[in-house]
Simulated scan of single mutants.
Amino acid sequence: MAYAQTQFDSFHNTILFGYESSKELRERREALLCDLKNNISADAPAYETFYQGSYALDTGVTPLDGNPDMDIGIIFDCAPEDYSDPLKLKKFVRDALVRHNRTVDIRRPCVTVTYYRDNVATHHIDMAVYSINGNNQTNIAWCRESTPLEEREWVVSEARELTKKITDRFDGTDRSQFRRAVRALKRWRDEHIGHKNTPSIGLTVAAHKWFSPRYDATDGKARDLIAIRDLIQQMLNNWGGRLTVNLPVAPYSDLFERMSDKQMTSFKTSLEALRDGLNEAEQQPDTHEACKILRKQFGEDFPVPEKVDTTKQTSAGLSVSGRSA
């Protein structure tokens, strides 16, 4: 059997996007927060910021289009009823950040700052605007500038609680394997799913719900191939007419609800192909051949070693980590 763990590790190191190691994005982040502090209107309430999304979860993947992003939350010290028109707070943020070297757009879930080089977007930072309701829940400002006043709304969205819940699900080597599996799934999605209705957070929460760490029972080494394969099987086992993955925090919405029935059917077919490919790779006696199969699923960044270096004895024993929560 070929588990290709060395190649999975190499693949992960290639595709991971480490925000703290990205000097340019880190500098942009600091500049934005500084501009927000210095330029925001005196009429705006006090605020605090926090990191959310893949940045906070440490599950970022280098995008195939070369345009990485970062998500920042801005919690204003006010209640939703203090600003019945949430667009007003989003305009405070937008107006504080407008400068010549970037575009700043108010989108429905956030204020997006995009940077360009030679008229090509190089990276962007999404800044979500929140208030806090009487139940101490964060509410996100949900509207564009073009949204009619009566349709602008505050929507309960517990982003900080989601980060904590996902991060606390595993620890130690289990958490590391969880993050590798999530990154691998994200890159697989980018390679095989041709629309945006299969969001990264949907895959991440599916992993939070159904992922189990896998290690070799003999030497204790990680077996990412088995862990990812078993996760996919769990997703397929829990398929009804559709795959439903609800947020584990308010508003508890289905993260795949925007997928059409046709997209959902295609998604299932692709997941089955991934599962079958992982099974086929595991059964290969030679790592070279296994990695050729895995590359078809995960893309050109998945390494295929020279054939002469790949045939090694492996253990068939596997165990589920007892450290998982």
Score class of each variant (00 low, 15 high):
M1C: 10
F11I: 00
I15F: 05
S21T: 13
S22A: 11
R28T: 09
E30V: 08
A31M: 08
A31F: 06
L32R: 05
K37I: 02
K37M: 02
N39R: 09
I40P: 05
L57R: 08
L57A: 06
L64H: 12
P68G: 02
I74N: 05
I75Q: 13
F76E: 04
D77G: 07
D82A: 12
D85Y: 11
V98W: 12
N101D: 15
R102Y: 03
V104M: 00
V104Y: 02
V104E: 00
P109E: 01
C110M: 14
T112N: 04
V113C: 14
T114F: 09
R117G: 07
H124K: 08
M127A: 05
A128V: 15
V129K: 06
V129N: 05
Y130T: 04
N136E: 13
N136K: 15
Q137H: 14
Q137E: 13
T138S: 15
N139Q: 13
S146C: 06
T147H: 02
P148S: 04
L149N: 07
E150G: 06
E150P: 04
T163G: 02
R169P: 05
F170V: 02
R180F: 01
A184G: 00
R187E: 03
D190E: 11
N197I: 06
G202T: 10
F211N: 01
P213N: 00
T218N: 14
A222M: 15
R223T: 11
L225T: 05
I226L: 15
I228G: 05
Q233G: 07
N237E: 12
N237R: 14
L247D: 01
V249L: 11
P251M: 03
D261K: 10
K262I: 12
K262R: 12
Q263K: 06
M264H: 11
M264R: 04
T265R: 15
E272L: 13
Q283E: 13
Q284T: 08
E289C: 07
E289D: 15
K292W: 03
I293C: 05
R295I: 00
K296V: 07
F298E: 02
G299H: 07
K307Q: 03
Q313S: 10
S315C: 11
S315D: 13
G317D: 09
S319F: 15
G322T: 14
A325W: 10
